[in-house]
Design a protein around this nucleic acid. Structure first.
Length: 439
RNA sequence: GACCCGUUCGUCUAUCGGUUAGGACUCCAGAUUUUCAUUCUGGCAAGAAGGGUUCAACUCCCUUACGGGUCGCCA
């Protein structure tokens, strides 16, 4: 029976979930799902001094938001639990005894060090290929501490033990772990275990090429919802950093990514984070949402600005769906549709004034629109043409002043849509308002 | 410093010895649109450098340069 693929994401709760970690989690998740395997979440909380509850929660929140569910881990449990390393000391003690029995550890200033075999160690990385580190050079590879003087175990040891105990088949992690892998291989060998396959994925860098750390702009996954991103867009963008579908398509849902993902298609060179493209990907995802889904996604942003979405919010949101890149842009885009007090774009108003006959245009529009029978986008637009005829100008010249009167903006949804959403009374009122202002 | 990994338009990338080196983001121009956005068309823009190997190299090898990573009783 072929081994079932089992991958894991093993973050330490010492800071907010950042995009690098999120992408690692994504690749692990995709690989497991792609192969019908299992994805495990393990919290590596062995550094008591640096762990925080907020960070732990940020991991769960981030994973949930991204849509990366785990088959085993905190909350859901599983046969290899507990999934917090802080609760697995008995397991580590047992494995440590194996090392003692095999005479592979020795005490040093109260701590226990693992004795490396002094030989070249070769790994066969699924992304980086064959890499050999020569452990005969002791200066470069000093024996490592596996058990601290306070009795606790260090990362290298618990990480390896848990990967063994949890029967992890594929370790997918950041390239910053590449040089750790021979250490882990030696430990596994000493423990008589079977090593998982390794895949080290390139790191994500800042736009300037420096290492992206947790405090850098755009690094915290938790910031993305606040900035108006939808999760599938961030997932999509992250997948494109270091992985390529090898086609010219770029916009993918999580399901589509699962279909196409493969470790063979992962790059070896680090990628810089481009916020502009990330926003574009977000826009593409917004464009592909149904009107209902878009309205549901936009609603909290509107409410956050103390705007009442109102009874026809689906239609209101749909009017601006293709005009925004980020959901945070929605409130200002729809404000004039929800409230009668809306800001006036002075530059647009100046442009109307420069046209000269603004008041006359408003008057003609008011008169024509007041006479419309059934109020629809078509009938209202027809009335605009009538007004233009009455004034002896082209309909096109009526549009801009009308738009400014109704929305206070130079751009926005189709005029027919605006007129329909506002209704006759409010439309006429706003036209009259601007007429007076221009007189 | 030592040891690893990497290097194609500004950025993300395709190319797995023979291509006018393709696509995307950004930017510019045009079309569509009353406007903005969307969409479409076009444009600017790349193989770090030097040596090999080969009929032929972005692609394979070496050197250098540059970038990143790792060298903890952090993970």
């Amino acid at each position: 029976m072929a081994d079932i693929v089992r991958t894991r994401f093993a973050p330490s709760p010492t800071g907010y979930l950042h995009v690098g970690g999120a992408r690692t989690a994504l690749f692990c998740w995709l690989y497991a799902r792609k192969h019908g395997g299992q994805f495990i979440l393990r919290i590596e909380d062995t550094d008591e001094a640096r762990n925080t509850e907020a960070a732990r929660q940020a991991i769960f929140d981030g994973m949930n938001w991204l849509g990366l569910d785990w088959d085993e881990g905190p909350d859901v449990g599983g046969p290899c639990g507990p999934y917090y390393q802080s609760q697995r000391n008995a397991v580590y003690d047992r494995y440590f005894e194996k090392l003692v029995a095999a005479d592979r550890v020795y005490e040093s200033e109260g701590a226990w060090r693992f004795r490396f075999e002094r030989k070249p160690v070769t790994m066969h990385d699924l992304v980086c290929g064959e890499v050999t580190i020569d452990y005969r050079d002791e200066s470069n590879t000093p024996d490592m501490v596996v058990k601290r003087s306070d009795g606790s175990y260090v990362f290298h040891f618990v990480n390896v033990v848990d990967d063994l105990e949890m029967r992890i088949t594929h370790v997918i992690r950041g390239e910053d772990h590449l040089m750790n892998t021979p250490k882990h291989l030696q430990l596994i060998e000493a423990l008589g275990g079977v090593a998982p396959a390794y895949a080290h994925i390139p790191l994500i860098q800042n736009p300037n090429g420096s290492k992206m750390s947790k405090r850098d702009q755009g690094a915290a996954v938790g910031d993305y919802p606040r900035q108006g991103f939808v999760a599938p867009a961030l997932v999509n963008f992250l997948a494109l950093l270091g992985w390529s579908p090898k086609t010219e398509e770029e916009i993918f849902s999580l399901d589509e990514l699962t279909q196409r993902f493969s470790l063979e298609a992962v790059n070896r060179s680090p990628a810089r984070f481009d916020a502009e493209k990330c926003a574009w990907v977000n826009q593409q995802h917004l464009l592909r949402m149904s009107a209902e889904d878009f309205a549901a996604a936009a609603r909290p942003y509107v409410e956050k600005e103390s705007l009442d979405p109102g009874p026809q919010f689906v239609a209101v949101a749909a009017a601006v769906q293709e005009k925004v890149r980020l959901l945070t842009e929605v409130p200002e885009a729809v404000r004039f549709l929800l409230e009668d007090a809306f800001p006036m774009d002075e530059a647009a108003l100046e442009k109307v004034k420069a046209g000269g006959n603004g008041a006359a245009v408003m008057g003609a529009l008011h008169e024509a629109l007041a006479q419309v029978g059934e109020w629809t986008a078509e009938s209202a637009k027809a009335a605009i043409a009538t007004a233009a005829g009455a004034l002896g100008v082209k309909a096109g010249q009526m549009m801009f002043p009308l738009r400014v009167s109704l929305s206070g903006k130079a751009g926005g949804p189709d005029l027919g849509v605006i007129l329909t959403l506002l209704g006759r009374d409010r439309s006429l009122q706003r036209i009259e308002q601007l007429r007076q202002r221009l007189s």
